[in-house]
Simulated scan of single mutants.
Amino acid sequence: MFVDFQNGWPPPERWEAEPKPLPNQRRESIAAWIIGFNLVMLLVGPLAGVTLFDAIIAALRH
């Protein structure tokens, strides 16, 4: 089998990712609020779910 290395395909162009935007004060504040909200929901969510199940069981009993 003959391989022609003289007239081969040109190498692909190098791909460079776009630079990520730098965090500023507003983005840091939004990220902090989102993390805080998730932490609060981590504690409050299970309690709300239990309360909902209790309400459904109470409604079915009467």
Rank of each mutant, 00 (worst) to 15 (best):
M1G: 12
M1I: 04
F2M: 04
F2Q: 03
F2W: 13
F2A: 09
F2Y: 10
F2H: 07
F2V: 04
V3E: 03
V3T: 06
V3Y: 04
D4A: 02
D4L: 10
D4K: 13
F5E: 02
F5L: 08
F5S: 05
F5W: 05
Q6K: 08
Q6T: 09
N7L: 07
N7Y: 13
G8I: 02
G8D: 02
W9S: 15
W9T: 14
W9K: 12
P10D: 07
P10N: 11
P10T: 06
P11D: 13
P11C: 09
P12H: 01
P12D: 06
P12L: 09
E13Q: 03
E13G: 00
R14P: 04
R14A: 07
R14Q: 06
R14F: 00
W15S: 00
E16L: 15
A17N: 01
E18P: 10
P19L: 00
K20P: 05
K20V: 05
K20W: 06
P21V: 08
L22S: 14
L22F: 15
L22D: 12
L22R: 14
P23Q: 01
P23N: 09
N24F: 07
N24S: 02
N24K: 04
Q25W: 14
Q25P: 02
R26T: 08
R26E: 07
R26V: 14
R26C: 02
R27V: 09
S29K: 07
S29E: 11
S29V: 04
S29C: 01
I30P: 09
A31V: 09
W33N: 12
I34D: 15
I35D: 10
I35F: 08
G36I: 00
N38P: 03
N38W: 14
N38K: 06
L39F: 12
L39D: 14
V40N: 05
V40S: 15
V40T: 12
M41G: 05
M41I: 12
M41L: 13
L42P: 07
L43R: 10
L43I: 13
V44N: 04
V44W: 11
G45S: 08
G45I: 08
P46Q: 08
P46S: 13
A48N: 11
A48F: 14
A48H: 10
A48G: 12
A48P: 05
G49T: 13
G49I: 15
V50R: 15
T51M: 10
T51Y: 15
T51V: 13
T51K: 10
T51C: 13
L52I: 11
L52Q: 10
L52K: 06
F53A: 09
F53N: 04
F53M: 09
F53Y: 05
F53S: 09
F53P: 00
F53G: 03
D54R: 15
D54S: 14
A55E: 08
A55I: 09
I56Q: 08
I57F: 12
I57E: 14
A58K: 07
A58G: 05
A58E: 10
A59H: 02
A59M: 01
L60I: 13
L60P: 00
L60D: 06
L60E: 09
R61V: 08
R61A: 06
R61F: 05
H62N: 02
H62W: 01
